[in-house]
């Protein structure tokens, strides 16, 4: 007997390849979205800093744009530089 597979429909969940599960700023899951977004994934992507910490892009931008702070990573307090 031989089994011929005609087509295979599978189910998968997508994940960000990141060290952590949750965003350090909004505490929501990376695979979810930041507080301002509705759709996860493309519409609410992650960014990595050179310090290797990552956040929802909207979260870190808000943080960096707030006037009180110098541009530091909210976790390790190093200068925030986007990872190229």
């Amino acid at each position: 007997m031989k089994v011929n597979i005609k087509s295979w429909r599978g189910v998968a969940v997508w994940k960000w390849i990141a060290k952590d599960d949750n965003c350090g700023i909004c505490r929501n899951a990376f695979d979810g979205c930041c507080t301002d977004c509705k759709m996860p994934g493309d519409e609410c992507p992650l960014v990595w800093g050179q310090c290797s910490h990552c956040f929802h892009i909207h979260c870190i931008m808000k943080w960096l744009n707030s006037p009180q702070v110098v541009q530091l990573c909210p976790i390790c307090r190093q200068d925030w530089k986007f990872k190229e």
């Binding site: 031989k2 089994v3 429909r9 599978g10 189910v11 998968a12 390849i17 990141a18």
Partner: peptide, 25 residues
């Protein structure tokens, strides 16, 4: 998928889904 969506990957759930197959005797 990883190529299309940078920094993202897929975790498959093997028992879910459906398969069309043919048994050839």
């Amino acid at each position: 998928f990883e190529t299309i969506k940078g920094s993202r990957t897929l975790n498959w759930l093997p028992p879910l889904g459906s398969v069309d197959l043919e048994l050839d005797f």
